[in-house]
Design a protein around this nucleic acid. Structure first.
Lengths: 197, 197, 197, 197
DNA sequence: TATGAATGAGCGTTCATTCAT
DNA sequence: TATGAATGAACGCTCATTCAT
């Protein structure tokens, strides 16, 4: 489904994916020429087509790989925590540090690849849904343990994921701290009047 | 930067902008042909170039106009409320109803505007900053009145604005209610155990 | 079906068709670049696509026009004759003189456009079938009048059409005379022994 | 011109020619990829270039070989007959059965060989001339024996060769019989009125 | 001012050919 | 000798932009 079968040089495929990440991140899909990706990888234009059937597939595979890598790193780190509260805190921390280590990821966020075509759009939405469900499950377990109050876990998950955008430019991660944001999400904005009673 | 000087027919310029909004929203930038915009506006293709120097400028001007209109509508409605709490609630409600009235706005979010130039990008960031500050001011006043607890108003504002994304697809506004989200943001996720003590 | 609807300049369409005839005849389909046809017509490459949707359609329309013109000339001249025998003689004469007036037609014969695609192939075969049937009808009428002996009219028609190839290079029309060929076809090769009795 | 000198494995060269025949016949020149020919021959793509300098040369050599083989088979069979009349009848029969045994030969006719260079074209014309002369000689001898009436032997030969096209699609060999065609050629179309007298 | 016919730069993809192994 | 991974020239088609009217 993704590539043309068995390829001679798995390293080259990887190299092309990395170049695709670099160039698509910087310029978006339509503005990127296949030849640019090839040049970035130090290979000929035709070689790209030995590993990917089309520019579109190249983008899809690159995104797949990035998302997989991103989510697997995230999930692995989350798995090391047991406390739902800690999990979410860790998630923010990891997310922010990933963005800092890899500024191109920020750019990647700023592009919207949904427009490539409808199939692509639905694939992206599925991926996002998956991520939301993963976070929602964490929240559910927090509700079970009583650490979180009963709430719409999916909404909370969607909110948390949306809130990651807070760390994108122009409010880079230098502006706000993870702790502040987590505190805000966990305790809310309102003065807990009744609680004080 | 935006137009070629003074045009005799400001109404025609406006009509082109509206058509650009309609078509770009539905099909994205790259997929839209200038001729389609012209047809939608009921004019000839060449006429577009009497009012805008390029397709790209047309998009930028359209985005500028839409954002200005959106923010001014929002700010005006907010001005009608006095209570900070109510203001924020109202903001969500207006946002969601705007999206519902104008589904194209939703689409607008889903397209690739990567080609924006630096000038436009900085304008965009200024506008966003403005909006954040506007919301932050509301929050500040809420803190003054004691309705909100002391918190980083700018962060809260950024969070609120980010959270608007919750109502975009695939979690359309039908999935979540404004009230749920407001409740979550205002009261937080955690069970307020200690507070109850 | 053939063009994109109403075109501004019918003369230009005709000019393109003529250029297509000139270039396709000389170089065949695959070897011909659309830009060459455009250059021959003294127009830009893109202009070709205002009148024809694709290179393939351009070929089809050109062939259609040529065949139509060729057959209509032929049929018209044939209509002026009443005697089946004379009709066939005239057909040869016209065919040969057309080839002489228009050497590109010779080239056109030497290319085989059937391979363009299956649809094209069947269209060509239909055209040829039409032509065969037209000739066969003439022969049938000759049989009715008793000028021709009872024979498979369709086979005779196919033979006659095939025999036109005799005048193609390397045996150009200068080698053989129409009269000789007609005589041969009409009286056969064998010494008419029994007739001598 | 044809190969790169002496090759160790003449059998492999032959094998490649046969594969070229099989694939070019079926798909035409432009549609055939060199790799397909190589695969059909069970060798690597690069190996083809050890025996032929280019795809085009491969085609020319294949055509040469097929034509030579076809003509030599035909001439050999003809040599077995002594009667001119019988020879021609046999020629048709052989031709048709060759086409039936080897449907690819039919296909070979249907493709565009326009790109042949002048050298090849002249070789082709020489071969054709040769064939015509061969048939013409048969006819001459028939005239000598009085079986054929005095006629332009070369024209008759050209006609006979052209008439072979009658058995190509769309009028496949199933439509017409060899006997019918031979009868037509030998006795002509006209009712032999005067002979009846 | 307004038009839309004309233009040609631009790009994704293919595949004949090369060459390192 | 044989291979097949790598290459890049080539081309059909699109569409933003221009300009004669």
């Amino acid at each position: 489904m993704s590539d043309n079968g068995i390829h001679p040089d798995a390293g080259k495929r990887q190299k092309i994916l990395e170049s695709a990440f670099a160039v698509f991140s910087q310029k978006g899909y339509q503005q990127t020429k296949v030849e640019e990706v090839a040049q970035h990888a130090g290979i000929g234009k035709g070689t790209v087509y030995l590993y990917f059937t089309s520019k579109e597939e190249l983008l899809r595979e690159m995104l797949k790989a990035m998302i997989k890598k991103y989510l697997s790193e995230l999930k692995q780190k989350l798995a090391e925590e047991t406390d739902p509260w800690a999990k979410l805190k860790v998630m923010y921390t990891i997310h922010v540090s990933l963005l800092q280590e890899n500024p191109s990821l920020v750019q990647l966020h700023l592009h919207d690849f949904a427009f490539v075509n409808d199939q692509f759009r639905s694939w992206l939405e599925t991926e996002k849904e998956d991520f939301v469900n993963h976070i929602a499950a964490i929240i559910e377990s927090g509700i079970q343990t009583g650490q979180f109050r009963p709430l719409n876990a999916k909404l909370a998950a969607a909110l948390i994921i949306s809130s990651l955008g807070v760390f994108l430019p122009p409010h880079s991660s230098e502006c706000f701290s993870v702790d502040e944001l987590v505190d805000l999400l966990f305790h809310g904005m309102s003065r807990r009047v009744s609680a004080q009673a």
